[in-house]
Amino acid sequence: MLTYDLYWSFRSPYSYFIASRLRALEEAFEVRCNVRPVFPIAVRTPEFFEGRDPLWFSYFMADIRREAEFLGLPMRWPRPDPVYRAPDGSYPAEQPLIHRLTYLGVAAAERGRGLPFLDEVSRVIWSGEITDWHEGDHVRRATERAGLDHDELVAAADSDSERYRAIIEESQAAQRAGGHYGVPMMVFDGEPFFGQDRFDQLKWRMEQKGLKRRTPA
Rank of each mutant, 00 (worst) to 15 (best):
A107F: 04
A107Q: 10
A107L: 08
A108M: 05
A109I: 13
A109L: 13
E110S: 02
E110T: 06
R111V: 00
G112D: 10
G112N: 12
G112K: 06
G112A: 12
G112F: 09
R113D: 06
R113H: 12
R113F: 02
G114P: 07
G114M: 07
L115T: 03
L115K: 00
L115Y: 03
P116N: 01
L118R: 02
E120W: 07
S122Y: 08
S122W: 01
S122A: 10
S122H: 13
S122M: 15
R123Q: 13
R123A: 14
R123M: 03
R123V: 11
I125A: 04
W126T: 04
W126S: 10
W126E: 09
S127P: 10
S127I: 06
G128V: 10
G128A: 07
E129N: 06
I130V: 15
I130G: 00
D132R: 08
D132C: 03
D132Q: 07
W133P: 09
W133I: 07
H134P: 00
E135L: 14
G136H: 03
G136N: 06
D137Q: 13
D137W: 00
H138A: 11
H138G: 00
V139N: 04
R140A: 05
R141D: 08
R141F: 07
R141H: 11
A142P: 04
A142T: 11
E144D: 01
E144M: 01
R145A: 02
A146L: 07
A146N: 00
G147Q: 06
G147P: 04
D149M: 12
H150R: 11
D151H: 12
D151T: 14
D151W: 10
D151Q: 15
E152V: 14
L153F: 06
L153K: 09
L153Y: 08
L153Q: 11
V154D: 06
V154C: 10
V154E: 11
A156F: 03
A156D: 14
A157N: 02
A157L: 04
D158Q: 14
D158Y: 08
D160M: 04
S161D: 13
S161E: 15
E162R: 12
E162K: 12
R163W: 05
Y164G: 05
Y164R: 03
R165E: 15
R165G: 01
R165A: 12
A166V: 12
I167G: 03
I167M: 11
I167A: 14
I168W: 06
I168V: 15
E169K: 11
E169I: 01
E169T: 09
E169W: 08
E169H: 14
S171R: 04
S171M: 00
Q172A: 05
A173Y: 02
A173K: 15
A173R: 15
